[in-house]
């Protein structure tokens, strides 16, 4: 398990790591100092995840015929099928 917080995590990785830490803490077999370290890390991860949730904005891209991605503007209500 990572013992240090890496800011390069994705939300999913952070959440996964957080879940792992909680499981490990709940198992109750960590030395005390280690569990404090892990707890600090878990708080950092929670903060990171919260920030990620707060600032998240759905990104929508479209595949071009050439296989690359380009910005896609989601059609408004009046769009037709």
């Amino acid at each position: 398990m990572e013992d240090r917080f890496s800011p390069n995590l994705t939300f999913e990785e952070a959440l996964k790591q957080l879940e792992d830490i909680v499981r490990k803490l709940e198992a109750g077999d960590l030395p005390l100092s280690e569990s404090i370290v892990q707890y600090k890390l878990s708080m950092q991860l929670v903060q990171f995840c919260r920030r990620a949730l707060d600032k998240a904005e759905l990104e929508v891209r479209e595949l071009t015929d050439g296989g690359s991605e380009q910005e896609f503007r989601v059609p408004r209500n009046e769009g037709v099928e």
């Binding site: 759905l58 990104e59 929508v60 891209r61 479209e62 896609f72 408004r76 209500n77 769009g79 099928e81």
Partner: peptide, 22 residues
């Protein structure tokens, strides 16, 4: 059309962490 619009609006509301590739 409505499909991509509904999907995008739902994801924007529920899970904006995701990236959608159409």
């Amino acid at each position: 059309g409505a499909v991509i619009r509904d999907i995008c609006s739902t994801l924007a509301r529920r899970y904006p962490l995701a990236k959608v590739i159409l």
